[in-house]
Computed example of a mutant assay.
Amino acid sequence: MGIQLSKGQRIDLTKSNPNLVKGVIGLGWDTNRYHGGGSFDLDASAFLADENGKCLYDEDFIFYNHLAHASGSVVHTGDNRTGEGDGDDEQLIVDFSKIPSHVHRIGITVTIHDAENRSQNFGQVSNAFVRLVNDHDGEELLRYDLGEDFSIETAVVVCELYRHGHEWKFNAIGSGFSGGLAALCQNYGLEV
């Protein structure tokens, strides 16, 4: 088992793991018992941003309708609409050797699809986590459990991968947003 992180902790990825070329970012969650009539559909996304935290191009936003960056640096493995079962509910694969030079940060987020219409929020989500696994050998390098700090939020910036010189680091963020995917897109400089 890898290193367990807490909110706000940062850790080196590529310097201390020189064989890390591809990382699998696994995200998982459970939903609390809820009788609102609609099922939960949580969605993972990645925002490939510049040094100012803004996406320069629409193509730098990876989500269920745009599964792969043209560079091959970030690939979403597909939308899980139920979150049923144990383990990762959705995954993003990051190939550090292919990340374009204009990308300095990769924000990893989770949103609740159609949350407002379904009266859903992250206060109804439990056991949320992100983990990073070395694709080469399957070793889990780190894990960050988000805890139960959310109430009305409909989107969460779970973590960020960021460039530090020639190396990449991981920042456990766990910051909630109201306004869902639209709010996140605006945060990263994209028009909705």
Rank of each mutant, 00 (worst) to 15 (best):
V74Y: 04
E116Y: 11
D149N: 15
L56I: 13
T31F: 02
D43P: 01
E90L: 09
L56Y: 06
F122N: 15
I108P: 00
E90G: 03
I106E: 12
R33H: 12
L42A: 11
F61V: 05
E90Y: 11
A70K: 06
D60K: 01
N117V: 03
L48H: 02
K54N: 10
N117R: 12
D41N: 15
R131C: 00
R105S: 10
L142D: 10
P100M: 03
A70P: 01
A155Q: 09
A49E: 13
D88Q: 03
I152G: 13
I152M: 15
I62H: 12
L92N: 07
S73W: 14
E84N: 15
G36A: 07
A155S: 05
V125G: 03
H69G: 07
F47Y: 12
L146Q: 11
S97Q: 10
L67Y: 08
W29R: 12
E140W: 01
S97D: 15
E59Q: 08
T82F: 11
D58P: 05
S97M: 11
F47Q: 13
A128R: 04
N121G: 06
N134I: 07
E139F: 01
G53V: 08
I108L: 10
D50S: 10
E139M: 05
R143L: 09
F61Q: 13
E59F: 08
E148C: 06
D50I: 02
S119E: 08
H102M: 01
I62N: 01
I112G: 05
N65H: 05
G107L: 13
F122T: 08
D86A: 12
V94S: 09
H35R: 15
D89P: 00
E90D: 11
A70S: 06
S73D: 05
W29S: 03
F40Y: 04
V103G: 06
D41I: 08
L67A: 12
I93R: 15
D86K: 09
G72W: 12
H76V: 02
N32V: 00
L48S: 04
F122A: 07
L92G: 03
V156N: 06
N117Q: 07
I62D: 09
G36H: 12
D50T: 10
G147Y: 04
G83Q: 05
S39L: 14
D86N: 04
G87Y: 00
E90T: 13
I99Q: 03
L42N: 08
G138M: 14
N65G: 13
N52Q: 14
E59H: 08
H104Q: 08
A68K: 13
E116A: 11
T154H: 02
L92R: 08
I93Y: 13
E59A: 14
Y144N: 06
D95R: 13
A128E: 03
V110H: 00
D145W: 00
G78Q: 09
L67D: 10
F61I: 08
D149F: 12
E140S: 01
D149S: 15
V110G: 05
S45H: 14
R131Y: 04
A115T: 06
R105Y: 07
Y57I: 01
S97L: 03
E139V: 13
G123E: 08
D30L: 02
T111H: 04
D149Q: 13
A115E: 05
F129W: 14
S71E: 00
Q124C: 02
A49F: 05
G78K: 14
D145F: 01
D149K: 15
R118W: 03
I152Y: 12
